[in-house]
Write a protein that binds this DNA or RNA. Structure first.
Length: 334
DNA sequence: GACGTTACGGTTGAT
DNA sequence: ACATCAACCGTAACG
């Protein structure tokens, strides 16, 4: 709302935040970094001036998914009536004009077009028949707009999401990679990456940015920073631009890193990239994560990042360059 | 005191 | 173009 120049509010600890918006990635990363150094959450909270609830949440998520990124905000549930589904329905109807909606439903399942989580309800099918298919003869390409041309929605998206209730539920003890994919839908499958040593300043902006944040952030970042005592950079807020500025100062902190990815937008409409996905995933796993002490390699990071964009891009035909660029840089979010 | 949880007021983005 | 709605956010406060 007030957009313009108002940026954030100040919390009880003196930290600046923007209500409703995720903390900047740089801070999120710092949280994880500090935790990996053995700093207690309560101390991280105080040092970074981020509420302990938030630190707790970010660390918990990181442990589970390996990602420092916030979840996907906004949007709607994935539509079950994807173009592919509609197409199948059309085909069934064409093949047998007298077919009943429930029969179509069964066929969608039988043919693997849908799984039990995303199969449309009988009433949805009826509606589709009525609204989208109506006259069968129409060649109009199915639906289409939303979907990017080539991305086939695969029938199986990671999304199946029985429901959000189980909060990330069981913490699967499984290996990171696995958990990532499973975990609810964290659609975002971001990766983790880690951090410590990597410096990314090649494009600082990259890293931290979040589109909209970028703007807002720059500002509030600044604020934050200045107010911080900044002892050793601990305060971390680094943001794109400011980063640059501060870069030197904090260079030792290094960078952050990001990770990436959001899968295709939120709901994991991931399309095709199963392959990539997997790949990436594993990468993430190896990257850092938990205590595995692992290491990090910047190359991986890049990969991760790289990977992400394409996917996203594909899916999201949104913007022209600028946005894309942001995404590229970073992390994204939506 | 530390920390998991959750109500609350907020933003976002697909439909 | 506008409104809904459901997802997510971080803080604050409770336990």
């Amino acid at each position: 709302m007030q957009m313009d120049q108002t940026y954030g509010e100040v919390n009880q600890l003196g930290g600046v935040f923007v209500n409703g918006r995720p903390l900047p990635n740089a801070i999120r990363i710092r949280i994880v970094e500090l935790a990996q150094l053995g700093i207690r959450p309560c101390d991280i909270s105080r040092q970074l001036r981020v509420s302990h609830g938030c630190v707790s949440k970010i660390l918990a998520r990181y442990n589970e998914t390996g990602s420092i990124l916030p979840g996907a905000i906004g949007g709607s549930k994935p539509r079950v009536t994807t173009p592919n589904v509609v197409k199948s329905i059309r085909d069934y109807k064409q093949g047998d004009p007298g077919i009943f909606a429930w029969e179509i439903r069964d066929r969608l399942l039988a043919d693997g077009v849908c799984d039990k989580y995303n199969v449309p309800s009988v009433s949805s099918i009826s509606r589709i028949l009525r609204n989208k298919i109506g006259n069968l003869s129409q060649p109009s390409q199915y639906d289409s707009k939303p979907s990017p041309p080539q991305i086939s929605y695969n029938p199986v998206y990671p999304y199946s999401y029985p429901n959000a209730m189980s909060p990330t539920g069981s913490k699967l003890g499984s290996p990171p990679g696995v958990s990532v994919s499973l975990s609810r839908a964290w659609p975002s499958v971001h990766t983790v990456s880690n951090i410590l040593g990597i410096r990314a300043f090649m494009d600082p902006a990259a890293i931290a940015g979040t589109e909209s944040y970028q703007q807002k952030m720059e500002d509030w970042t600044g604020v934050n920073r200045s107010s911080f005592p900044s002892v050793h950079g601990v305060n971390g807020i680094d943001k794109p631009e400011s980063d640059i500025k501060y870069n030197q100062a904090s260079s030792n902190l290094s960078g952050y890193v990001p990770a990436c990815a959001y899968s295709a937008n939120q709901y994991g409409v991931y399309g095709g990239p199963a392959g990539n996905y997997g790949h990436w995933q594993s990468q993430g796993a190896s990257l850092s994560h938990p205590n595995t002490g692992a290491m990090i390699q910047s190359p991986n990071l890049h990969c991760a990042i790289a990977f992400k964009n394409p996917a996203r891009d594909a899916v999201e035909r949104k913007s022209p360059l600028s946005k894309q660029q942001h995404d590229v840089h970073g992390l994204s979010e939506s």
